[in-house]
């Protein structure tokens, strides 16, 4: 198979969410200047999404396999939203969230609410945010549970979980007390993603909270730019593009991501 490359001009970039240790690259929208064949050329796409290491207006050469064509109906800003949206959708995809299952997410990074919103769009019911911010307003169709008093939060979450056939949760905080709370509240066959960078050593009761519950624990770090590394990159980003073509979804994403974005 021939290795096609694209010559691109970087038009707009966004910074990754975390920079510690992993040092992920920026990502951005770039205009196609030249192509030596390949499916992007034949698709006629004028812009692509890709990871970038060069500043705006730079000319870069990138293998076609690292680029995803941007639909012509989307502007640069909407195209950039596809990356965090795809990452948020991939969280619940990996947790296999089903219609009517509980979806719990936590505070911890600027995209937390986009992750929660993705759970609502995937049919999570209820979608509960655990946080310590009394000012925070719940998402449309979402709930909030304060963790100011962890014991009370655990009691209330357990009550909410009781009788529900499915439980999924994602921790974005990396904080031991929140991870502990989620592990304790998780019922049998629960699925939990530890997606917040843990900074402190944890004490985990694997016996009671993972082994005996038959739980699934996914350990990784939520970093939107990582969707470029996933095998399903094309699928995730294409799905996100299709969603962003709907004005109401693009508006919600834009509102939830705006604090994070920089050009």
């Amino acid at each position: 198979m021939q290795n096609h490359t694209l010559e691109l001009i970087v038009e707009k970039t966004s910074r990754p969410l975390i920079a510690a240790e992993t040092d992920p690259p920026d990502y951005g929208v770039a205009r196609v200047v030249r192509s030596n064949g390949g499916y992007i050329k034949s698709s006629g796409a004028s812009h692509v999404l890709t990871t970038v290491t060069a500043p705006r207006s730079s000319i870069i050469t990138v293998p076609e396999g690292e680029c995803v064509p941007v639909p012509p109906s989307l502007g640069e800003d909407e195209a950039l939203l596809a990356v965090p949206l795809a990452a948020a959708l991939s969280v619940w995809d990996r947790l296999q969230l089903e219609l009517g299952e509980i979806a719990v997410y936590t505070e911890g990074n600027k995209l937390a609410d986009l992750v929660g919103q993705a759970a609502v769009w995937r049919g999570g019911c209820p979608v509960i945010r655990l946080d310590s911010d009394p000012e925070w307003a719940p998402l449309n169709m979402g709930e909030r549970l304060s963790i100011a008093d962890p014991e009370e939060a655990l009691r209330r979450l357990q009550k909410r979980v009781h009788g529900k056939p499915g439980f999924t949760a994602v921790d974005l905080s990396g904080r031991p007390e929140i991870i502990d709370l989620l592990l304790e509240a998780m019922p049998r066959w629960g699925r939990l993603m530890l997606a917040g960078r843990t900074q402190k050593p944890l004490t985990v009761d694997f016996y009671n909270n993972v082994h005996r519950k038959g739980a699934l624990l996914l350990c990784e770090v939520f970093e939107p730019v990582s969707v470029f590394e996933k095998r399903e990159r094309e699928a995730y980003l294409s799905t996100a593009f299709r969603l962003l073509e709907k004005t109401e979804i693009a508006e919600v994403c834009s509102r939830l991501v705006v604090a994070h974005r920089s050009s």
């Binding site: 530890l194 694997f206 739980a215 699934l216 350990c219």
Partner: peptide
Amino acid sequence: AQKKNLTVIG
């Protein structure tokens, strides 16, 4: 676990 993207199954 997190750095290695492990899946832990009870």
